[in-house]
Design a protein around this nucleic acid. Sequence first.
DNA 1: GGTCCCATGTAACACGTTACATGATTAC
DNA 2: GTAATCATGTAACGTGTTACATGGGACC
Lengths: 181, 181
Amino acid sequence: MNTLAYGLLGLVARTPSSGYDLMLQLQPYWQAKHSQIYPLLAKLEQEGYMQFTRVHQTDRPDKKVYSITEKGEIALKLWLAEPPAEPVTRDEMVLKAYCLQLTDAKSARALFTSRIEQCKEHMQMYEHVMQEMEQQSDGHPNDPNHPAFSDYILLSWGVRRMKEDVKWCEWVLELLEKRKD
Amino acid sequence: MNTLAYGLLGLVARTPSSGYDLMLQLQPYWQAKHSQIYPLLAKLEQEGYMQFTRVHQTDRPDKKVYSITEKGEIALKLWLAEPPAEPVTRDEMVLKAYCLQLTDAKSARALFTSRIEQCKEHMQMYEHVMQEMEQQSDGHPNDPNHPAFSDYILLSWGVRRMKEDVKWCEWVLELLEKRKD
DNA sequence: GGTCCCATGTAACACGTTACATGATTAC
DNA sequence: GTAATCATGTAACGTGTTACATGGGACC
């Protein structure tokens, strides 16, 4: 049982889904390809954490819809009660920023303007989804009892982080103005 | 040539160092164990991106001090000119937050209080190093011509992020007050 | 005497990505 | 026709972690 396994367990606990669907749902929160997900689902099913039913579709290929078992729910709740592991971030940008002195001023600036663009793209995506949520008439998602509460807070985290990263990049760009080459 | 290889190249370009030293220097920016670094350094040396000289020490074991070659510098500068890849973050916290509805209110709150503690610890470390930098008498590191400029901006990024994450956790904790169980 | 730091390496395993493989339906 | 989406899987490879292996010096 690794983190990806618990992530999948968490998704199917909310809504029974196919492997393909889980892959898409998981993307924003944990990057994993279908080639990693399918074998893991098979393993989780064999070990009794999940079960699946084959669902026939006429317009599309048939699918296996996975749902959580009692054993899976117990394991999931035990995992949830443990404090979260420290995040692991692998950002090429950090390594490149560390080498600023080795580049010309132009490349140095480009590093931060590129990152600003990346951040803004993500921010717009997040904000768009949040706005759609807020416009639904089933209550506001900032209510912790709303079913989309967790989605809402994670999106707002994304927006906050992107905003802060943009601010930082702009601050660095300002400092870089004073650079002599 | 992968990202870790360029990271090592960037470090030795600034200061020729041993594998052990590179491992320690790299830790804050890219997590890698010595078992990954030593073979990679050997490969980079064989392919002509780096060279090493054996340095004898009396009180400690001898070491191999790696420095960058011309070929290495060219490769490094080409890499620096490319826009940075999108960061990859793997944070268990995100997956756990997604499952908030499945836990009791107590575990839900614990998730965010634990994260606040983690953030504050990091923040204090970063701030401590920054303060030490500022107290050195060789100019202020927020000058882009200062040799520690890149270290300084990366530390300040760390502090900013940690502060923002704490704020977000506190915001979520406030919202969670209204939860009915 | 035990533990920590320095210093370098290999081996086995776990995790993640890319590529290979198949095949139907929908949209341009 | 050609590309995209849905749907599931395997194989090969690259990356990252844990464990094994060695050995001297410093410190308590």
